[in-house]
Design a protein around this nucleic acid. Sequence first.
RNA 1: GCGGCUAUAGUUCAGUGGCAGAACGCCGCUCUGUGGCAGCGGAUGUCGUGGGUUCGACCCCCACUGGCCGCCCCA
Length: 461
Amino acid sequence: MTDSKKAPARPALKAIRGTRDLLPDQTPLWNHVETIARNLFARYGFGEIRTPVLEATELFARGVGEETDIVSKEMFTWEDRARAAGEGARSPESKAQLLTLRPENTAGVVRAYIEHQMANSGALRKLYYIGPQFRRERPQRGRYRQFWQIGAEVIGPPSSGSESPLRDAEILEMLASFLDELGVRGWRLELNSVGSSQDRVHYNEVLRAALQPIGSRLCADCQRRAVTNPLRVLDCKVPEDQALIGALPRIADHISADSQAHFDAVRAALEACGVPHHLNPRLVRGLDYYTRTTFEFTVATGLGTQNALLGGGRYDGLSEMLGGPRSPGIGFAIGEDRLILTLQAQQEEDAKGSGTSPRELLDAYIAPLSRAQDPAALALAHELRSAGLRIEVGDGSFKLRKSFEIADGLARHIVLLGEDEANSEIYTVKAFSSGEQTRITRAKLAEALRGLQSSSTNFVQ
RNA sequence: GCGGCUAUAGUUCAGUGGCAGAACGCCGCUCUGUGGCAGCGGAUGUCGUGGGUUCGACCCCCACUGGCCGCCCCA
């Protein structure tokens, strides 16, 4: 640092802000969560759909809502260049298109539902997805710019029963089962009805009128919301505002009899299934397409202030907003990153005092005793792997001591492969758990290594 | 987008305006076909990036970038 070798500062390539790598010590838990979800959803008759990560910006502007925070300030949007002259463009003035990295997946699923004319079969469609979403927010625990959602949608023409309160209750019961099956403890379901789209328009006027005289006494954020999105005032957490907000007209008093009856039926079905839930008349969701039933599952451990694990609701008018046929629907999105954080926090709680958790081991480590044995070692590994075993191969340049150190903690057995073994095809095998060492013929090796295979899977890193 | 805290070895973290530290991990030897233990030895690094103050900056100041916490919002 004293002399003049100030090299040109190299940039150091790193994952960009708000994105991250999931390494092999993490991915087993992710796969576990996704496997549980896939199996469970299948039992409820859901099929998987995969939609593009890229959509036309207009889809979200119309679907999610121009005025929402997500659309107005959190999307990764850019102008895709018009086709260049050299690309054989027929029309030289083909316009550039606004594209957006999807900030959520419901709009994309409904777009696909319309595009593939799924309404025409007349059947109720049950679709689920697992994939990354993108929002340009300030990163924080449980909040990333690329984050993963596991979600599902139930949608269809009214004649398919898509409006039935039974669908709402079924979705909520499925989510409760999902969290229980994963072992998420202490979840809480909060439920509300924001009424039909007409109810919302009506209530918005009532609310705007009620806010008019008191607006100036609310916090700055609420004053802004009172104009742009009055419903969101109900979600305010500023202590000074609570008295005023509490006195505002309530949604429940301004929804139609139909909406009220629908909501009552949802709750009755939930009671019948024994799904615990709490009414929260001030639960308001930030996406414009929600109607009637809205809900949120929260959890106390692991997430700090981002305690919403998943959310969702009805969107009876979304298909029409996107130019499709009338097709009421209901869906949800689980924050997979947050779910993982919750599970990891629980595991840490559980691990307190119970020492370290074992990790999943390979079946055997093959240790060639000299470089001359390397080819034979790889051949043996191939043979055993073909037999379905999980095998790692060492290197003939390693000292035997080193091979043992590597093998222990990585595999359940070590197989020594030296000149004797190569000639005799009788291998020396040692089991780490017992310390027992035996000599086994090549023909019986796979079978011997398979014995004692641990069937329990472990996801603790 | 706003406010606060923070960035030193592979990891977790000490540290002082005057030669860069510990623990764990890693490598070697004791010990050339039998590891986990132990003893001895070794290497760690543009002290996040760029500027400024200073005789001298890892330390003080500013900016930038990243992370964390809170707000906003959401999953």
